[in-house]
Design a protein around this nucleic acid. Structure first.
Length: 564
RNA sequence: GGCCCCAUCGUCUAGGCAGGUCUAGGACACCGGGUUUUCAACCCGGCGACAGGGGUUCGAAUCCCCUUGGGGCUACCA
């Protein structure tokens, strides 16, 4: 693996004939939708142009990184179907692809900047800086770090280090005229350098900052196009100035700042929404038992308390577990959340692509190949877009309908594993059959909900209180059920067709709608009012188990009817 | 507060850069009806937008300015 030196980089005349894009997440947790969209757009552009797509891990913040997060991000990207040509796991010519492993590279560039007088040492502590900001605020002026008349010397830096004071390096933003960013989405944007702070490029822990490392890496990794969210727009003049200070002969990468995806609750979609929604849901609970919540979440009761007070946030598994326990649906934010809610990756890719981009005609449902074919930077949208979950569901319904059964089967199995459904016990053939019977389902969760009763032990059926009350305990319901039981027992031919004839015949005899017959039966078999068509339900369960469940329900609820 | 971005139905958007063909098109949602064994799905119909004000022009959703509104950034986070 050969590293570019500062000098060699300068000499090389980079002519980017090939498009190179990158996705550069910081490994702080799960990949969230916003990140997924950014990754997708960069990937689409690389694939569209036949260029390269790089995955780079921006792990320069030691406090925030978690060891498994990079792996998790890669898993989430793969689930979406996004692959990369260069990255930490697959390597590549311009690696390594984790910034924490590139420190000598950054050091070299910092050294050069320092030597050329384009950057300078700083010894303020965080507290000093905070105080300065405070003061600026009371004066109601914007805070811009004031550059010293004379840059501290190498000796000053050594002395400061010896005294145990923090030493950072700041980039001196050139003040010789406005910095003009030529954005592919927004056109020319001009910034006054006097209003841009000399930002820190080397932290006191020896790690570079994002704003610096990203510029060095984009250059060394030959990145030609930077597609990212609008939240990075204000970083761009600084990064651009840095680039020109370090690589004056290399053309700048092309920047495209995409619109932000906002949440229906206001600002941009944030990871905090899930815990926030859970907190609200818990607080609305009629009877609050923090001990139980702590137990299901696998956390201490104290953690629950501080969480409810808004002082802390438990980790995701705890949040998921508690939400599941109290039965609230949390808004999906991370890519895995969508997976766990039964969405298909195809749906998400399609939907995300349409957030801030469109093909220019009236197509909406588009597979990845089609997206690649049609993708074009010129059609990126300027205004923010709201993440519309209803439309997402509509898209998922569409994909569930149009994807071949085999494909759905693969996704369904992954989903069932994720949520540990009893349906996992079914073989592929049965699953495929169930998928066919669930035409019109909106999510994989729907499929699971409608058919998991088939694989729950007969005596482990959970009866939904409302369903029981509304259906089973209604006058005459159990009597009908008894008749159904008797006729079922006498059937020698137990086929879907015969079942339908029998049940319809019975309804006709009794002069009632089929619902009066089907619903009590359904609740007896499934515990809920939601299942496959009643004929399919009875048929798939099999005669023996059907009879057993009816008998159990009869026995259990007869008493209740009487006692009420 | 400062800097920056944005502005078409409730939502995502087409149209805008090259002004007339826009009584503004599509999709999702919603409303009404149909189908119906649950949940869905499905079918038919309907409601619904150029933020406001000034210009420029024969003519503005489209170009310019202002106002208003929304968003982003303002860290030794990325």
């Amino acid at each position: 693996m050969s590293f570019h030196t500062f000098a060699s980089v300068r000499e090389s005349q980079a002519v980017p004939e090939e498009v190179v894009t990158r996705f550069a997440p910081s490994p702080t947790g799960y990949l969230h939708v916003g990140g997924g969209r950014t990754a997708l757009f960069n990937w689409l552009w690389a694939r569209r142009t036949g260029g390269r797509f790089i995955l780079r891990i921006e792990d320069t913040d030691q406090k925030r990184n978690t060891p498994t997060a990079a792996q998790q991000v890669m898993t989430d990207l793969r689930w979406l179907g996004i692959d990369w040509d260069e990255g930490p796991d697959v390597g590549g010519p311009n690696g390594p692809y984790c910034q924490s492993e590139r420190r000598d590279l950054y050091d070299r560039h910092i050294r050069q900047l320092l030597d050329e007088g384009k950057a300078y040492y700083c010894f303020e502590t965080s507290e000093d800086l905070d105080a300065m900001r405070q003061e600026a605020e009371t004066r109601k002026t914007g805070f811009v770090f004031r550059r010293p008349e004379q840059f501290p010397s190498e000796q000053d830096a050594q002395k400061a280090r010896a005294e145990g004071r923090p030493v950072t390096v700041r980039f001196a933003i050139p003040q010789d005229g406005p910095i003009v960013v030529n954005d592919l989405v927004r056109g020319q944007i001009s910034f006054n350098p006097a209003e841009l702070a000399d930002f820190i490029i080397l932290k006191s822990d020896g790690f570079p900052t994002y704003n610096f490392a990203c510029v060095v890496d984009d250059r060394l990794m030959e990145v030609t196009h930077v597609l990212r969210g609008q939240e990075h727009l204000m970083n761009t003049p600084g990064q651009q100035a840095l680039w020109q200070a370090m690589f004056p002969d290399a053309p700048l990468p092309k920047y495209a700042h995409m619109s932000v995806t906002v949440s229906d609750s206001g600002g941009k979609l944030s990871k905090r929404e899930r815990p926030k929604a859970l907190r609200t849901a818990i607080q609305a609970l009629p009877d609050l038992d923090t001990a139980i919540l702590a137990q299901v979440g696998g956390i201490s009761e104290e953690e629950v308390q501080t969480f409810l007070a808004g002082e802390s946030v438990p980790d995701m598994p705890a949040i998921d577990a508690i939400a599941k326990h109290i039965g609230v649906h949390l808004p999906e934010i991370n890519i895995v959340d969508f997976c766990k809610s039964g969405y298909l990756p195809e749906t998400l890719v399609n939907f995300l692509a349409l957030l801030g981009w469109n093909p220019g005609d009236q197509r909406e449902v588009m597979r990845a190949e089609e997206l690649i074919e049609s993708f074009d930077l010129a059609r990126l949208t300027k205004s923010n877009s709201l993440f519309d979950r209803q439309k997402l569901i509509a898209f998922n319904t569409e994909y569930l309908r149009m994807l071949p059964g085999e494909k759905v089967l693969g996704h369904l199995k992954a989903y069932l594993t994720e949520v540990q459904s009893p349906l996992l016990k079914a073989d592929d053939e049965t699953l495929l059959r169930i998928i066919r019977l669930c035409e019109g389902a909106r999510t994989l969760e729907d499929i699971d909900n409608k058919s998991r009763f088939l694989f729950v032990e007969d005596d482990k059926i959970e009866f939904d209180e409302k369903a029981v009350k509304k259906v089973l305990l209604k006058a005459g319901a159990l009597d009908v059920l008894q008749v159904v039981r008797d006729r079922l027992a006498r059937m020698d031919e137990y086929t879907e067709q015969a079942l339908e004839e029998m049940l319809r015949g019975l309804a006709e005899e009794k002069q009632v709608g089929l619902g009066k017959v089907a619903q009590p039966l359904r609740v007896a078999l499934c515990g809920t009012t939601i299942s496959l068509s009643i004929f399919d339900s009875v048929n798939l369960l099999g005669k023996e188990r059907t009879l057993a469940r009816i008998d159990a329900a009869l026995e259990r609820f007869r008493n209740q009817v009487q006692s009420e």
